[in-house]
């Protein structure tokens, strides 16, 4: 191959080599495969969902029915859609303050020798498979929520004015929207913390040193310099966590209770799109209306998480360029 190019200097001056052409198109072809994959996922989900969309129309989004009995089949996605969004947002509420604390600790407070091991340990949290979070959640977090939060604090929580109803539940199994949100929060914690740490580190040291030189405390530096400088990327990191939480399947399936019922309180069991698909899809008949309804939910999940992830990518673009 090398000998082929050497004796023809004319060919080289035109800068075209057969190997070059092949390799470039190989790379470009692989790129098209990836584009096709994303397109394929959208199209196949939509095709699978079509019978359900035709049958139920827009009512699919608002109906809470889930009736697989033959002849009276009726499916609605409202419970799963609500459960998905509620558990993910609740998880963000739990995770963001802790993630911020970790990022602040790792960038400003911790001594140099401690930063790497602690950072690595937090990153390893992201490597633990979701099924492990599910099992751990079921056997550790669920009993904890049941005994030490729901039973021990339930009466005090329901007595809180205005929001007390959120904690009033007839269900005491411990598997609930609340438990799912806790487990989800732990799972997305490393993603948000790592993004925040990375963007905090990108603040030019001169800015921080100027603030310190004026006598600012570390908290004032973070509040007045670091956060304003990085706020767009911080929101991007939170959106990334949100995108992850929306589509998480196994961990949620273990701890949310899988009840197709609109939750009246945080301690009620519920379901999410991903977990209803995981629970019901393998058992559904090929080509049945139920399968199509599950495809429809999958399509909606794809649309929701695509929008969130795209927003996250857009907000994080300055970080990606750097």
């Amino acid at each position: 191959m090398g000998a082929g190019t050497a004796p023809k200097p004319v060919g080289r001056s035109r800068g075209i080599d057969v190997g070059d052409l092949v390799f470039e198109w190989l790379c470009r072809g692989a790129g098209f495969v990836v584009l096709l994959l994303l397109g394929g996922i959208i199209v196949t989900l939509f095709i699978g969902a079509l019978p359900a969309f035709r049958e139920f129309g827009l009512g699919f989004l608002t109906s809470t029915d889930w009736n697989p009995v033959e002849g009276r089949e009726n499916y609605g996605g409202a419970v799963a859609i609500f459960g998905t969004i509620a558990s993910a947002i609740l998880a963000i509420v739990f995770a963001v303050p802790v993630a911020f604390g970790i990022a602040f600790f790792l960038t400003e407070l911790a001594p140099e020798w401690l930063r790497r091991p602690v950072g690595t340990a937090i990153e390893l949290l992201a490597a633990v498979p979701s099924i492990i979070y599910g099992m751990w959640g079921l056997f550790v977090v669920v009993p904890f929520v049941q005994m030490y939060i729901q039973l021990a604090l339930g009466d005090y929580l329901t007595a809180i004015p205005l929001v007390g109803f959120l904690f009033e539940s007839r269900f005491f199994a411990g598997t609930s929207l609340f438990t799912a949100a806790i487990v989800l929060a732990i799972m997305i914690l490393p993603f948000i913390a790592a993004t925040m740490r990375d963007v905090f580190l990108q603040v030019p040291p001169v800015y921080k040193e100027s603030a310190y030189g004026l006598g600012a405390t570390r908290w004032e530096v973070v509040k007045g310099v670091v956060l304003p400088y990085t706020r767009i990327s911080v929101v991007g990191g939170i959106m990334l966590g949100l995108g992850r939480a929306l589509g998480e399947t196994m961990a949620v399936t273990f701890v949310i209770g899988n009840a197709n019922r609109m939750p009246q309180s945080l301690f009620d069991p519920s379901t999410t799109i991903a977990s209803i698909v995981a629970m019901e899809f393998p058992e559904s008949l090929m080509g049945s209306l139920k399968q199509s309804a599950l495809f429809a939910l999958g399509f909606l999940l794809f649309v929701i998480s695509f929008l969130v992830l795209a927003a996250s990518r857009y907000l994080l673009r300055s970080r990606l360029k750097a």
Binding site: R244, G247, T249
Partner: peptide, 13 residues
């Protein structure tokens, strides 16, 4: 997007 997309949807696909 594929990196963070819900893996169960890849199963459906």
């Amino acid at each position: 997007v594929l990196l963070s997309a819900p893996s169960i949807l890849i199963g459906l696909f």
